[in-house]
Write a protein that binds this DNA or RNA. Structure first.
Lengths: 124, 124
DNA sequence: CCTTGACTTAGAGTATACTCTAAGTATTAC
DNA sequence: GTAATACTTAGAGTATACTCTAAGTCAAGG
């Protein structure tokens, strides 16, 4: 399957502006037809979804750019990409643990407030 | 125990600039001595730590401001604060799950790269 | 007495990641 | 043939959360 920028925008949940911006930044390579119109493929879709996962873990555009650039070069950059991912993973695991702790703190706070207010006020 | 802004800055890991900024924004109320110098207390420390937990879970300054403002008003705003926390908790749980999934994705990616590169290249 | 550390207001600067506008052209679908 | 959708460059605008500078004052400690 192939998609126009408008269709692709809806599918991946990024605005056309953002898609062009990502392309300009080198995060994604997109084929064009004879009229210079962007033709997105399912491969592009997988790549964007992968990028969004990296973004979800807090990777900066700069690092995603580097990762994409290496990806476009080819197999000889696999080690670099692996190193980047492993390095990033460390930070994510730390962040994950911090978030877990802060969520626990939040739960304790909520528990405290509910006790203070008494059962009659506590909602589902 | 009480602390000057310099000491407190080191203890809580926020710059003096940021501490004054947070105060100006209404996130924290600080006592002053006769010379108008900020005197931070252990209570302030607990409060800041609480705020930083909320910040860790991605709460915006705007929401923290609202929460702090209600806190300063007193007990009659407990329900509002509880509602804000519960509402925020929902978002955090979603975010947490998203992060978990993205971390899983990252692990799969790393696993894939390590297989591609072969055992001789995989580092601890 | 002078260095250190505190205070003030007001506003400028930084970084990230978009987000949009302008102004003009081109192609496709009805 | 006109509306919708696409394209371009170049740059301006937005939001968040700091982060710092200027320019001046003030008070305590060695």
């Amino acid at each position: 399957m192939t998609y126009s920028i408008g269709e692709f925008s809806k599918i991946v949940g990024l605005s056309e502006h953002t898609l062009r911006f990502y392309e300009k930044e080198g995060l994604i390579k997109v084929n064009r037809n004879d009229n210079n119109v962007r033709i997105y493929s399912d491969e592009n879709k997988l790549w964007i979804e992968s990028l969004l996962h990296l973004k979800n873990t807090g990777m900066s555009l700069k690092d995603m750019k580097q990762f994409a650039m290496w990806g476009h070069i080819g197999d000889e950059t696999m080690e670099e990409r692996l190193a980047l991912l492993k390095n990033h993973r460390k930070k994510v695991v730390e962040e994950f643990e911090k978030l877990r702790q802060s969520l626990e703190h939040l739960d304790n706070k909520i528990y405290f407030y509910e006790n203070e207010l008494g059962d009659c006020f506590s909602k589902k």
